[in-house]
């Protein structure tokens, strides 16, 4: 299986950056601690904000830290390689191969995500459990649902990052688009603040956008806020966005080869 081999290779490749992993775990933990105290202060004022209790809120913080790098919310996935290869023209080589570009980079990104989940996901969570009162999934179903929702979250994030990287076909460099999308992702994924705290139509909008599939949805599944049929529809929400966005990636790629130059001779 080619895509399994690609995923395994990506896993191995990222695992060679040990120092970066350790530094990342440290950073995630520090931010986890800071945010936890901030949230605890907030929930002391308003003990039922967004329907979360204080334990839920702190749990939400640490899950966010665990997922941040796993889904590569701000980049750092294989889509960074893609953007660079479009910029310097090496993408031509990818296109010469009898393999779809989207599937190729997705497989690599899932391999990377697994590595980041096992290191930058698990390690800060353990630290969070030791230092704070974190609630575990209330049922085996919730735990299983959470595990299922992660690859979906990664796929949604991947597809969004792929689209951002693809702008390099037209803009020659994807940096600007990446900064913009990073800001949107920070806000609308629920990373900065749980979307349940957003008022009115802004909350409704935020929960409907694909960004919420990256952090808010997996976190709510862990917290047991989606049960039964609702758990199914939460996963379907992620899967739906994943499929729609992947299809868009394929479309954009076709457009790129039709309209633009692959850079460099």
């Amino acid at each position: 299986m080619l895509h399994v081999a690609v995923a395994r290779r990506a896993f191995r490749r990222y695992s060679t950056y040990r120092a970066a992993t350790v530094a990342g775990i440290f950073t995630n933990s520090v931010f986890g601690i800071i945010y936890s105290f901030a949230y605890l202060a907030l929930w002391r004022q308003n003990p039922d904000a967004g329907g979360y209790d204080a334990a839920d809120a702190v749990t939400y913080v640490w899950l966010g830290q665990a997922l941040l790098m796993t889904v590569a919310l701000w980049g750092g996935g294989t889509t960074d390689d893609l953007a660079e290869r479009i910029r310097n023209g090496d993408v031509a080589i990818d296109l010469y191969r009898p393999v779809g570009l989207v599937g190729w980079y997705l497989a690599g990104d899932l391999g990377r995500a697994l590595y980041h989940f096992l290191t930058r996901g698990l390690a800060p969570t353990v630290i969070g459990i030791v230092l704070f009162d974190i609630s575990l999934p209330p049922s085996p179903t919730a735990a299983l649902g959470f595990l299922l929702s992660i690859p979906l979250a990664v796929t949604v994030s991947f597809a969004l990052r792929f689209l951002v990287a693809s702008t390099a076909f037209w803009l020659l460099d994807a940096t600007g688009a990446r900064i913009l999308s990073g800001a949107l992702a920070l806000f609308f994924s629920g990373m900065a603040l749980p979307l349940v705290l957003f008022p009115g139509w802004l909350g409704t909008l935020a929960e409907a956008l694909p960004f919420s599939a990256m952090i808010q949805v997996p976190n709510d599944i862990w917290l047991g806020r989606h049960t039964g049929l609702e758990l199914g529809s939460a996963l379907a929400f992620q899967a739906g966005w994943a499929l729609a966005l992947l299809a868009t990636c394929g479309l954009v790629l076709r457009l790129a080869t039709r309209k633009v130059v692959v850079q460099g001779g």
């Binding site: 031509a92 009898p98 393999v99």
Partner: peptide, 20 residues
């Protein structure tokens, strides 16, 4: 340009291409 993977031994690149 190269179709090989920088971080892989030559043999691994060839094996990946076999799968491709």
């Amino acid at each position: 340009r190269t179709t090989l993977w920088w971080d892989l031994p030559l043999r691994d690149s060839f094996e990946l291409l076999q799968k491709i």
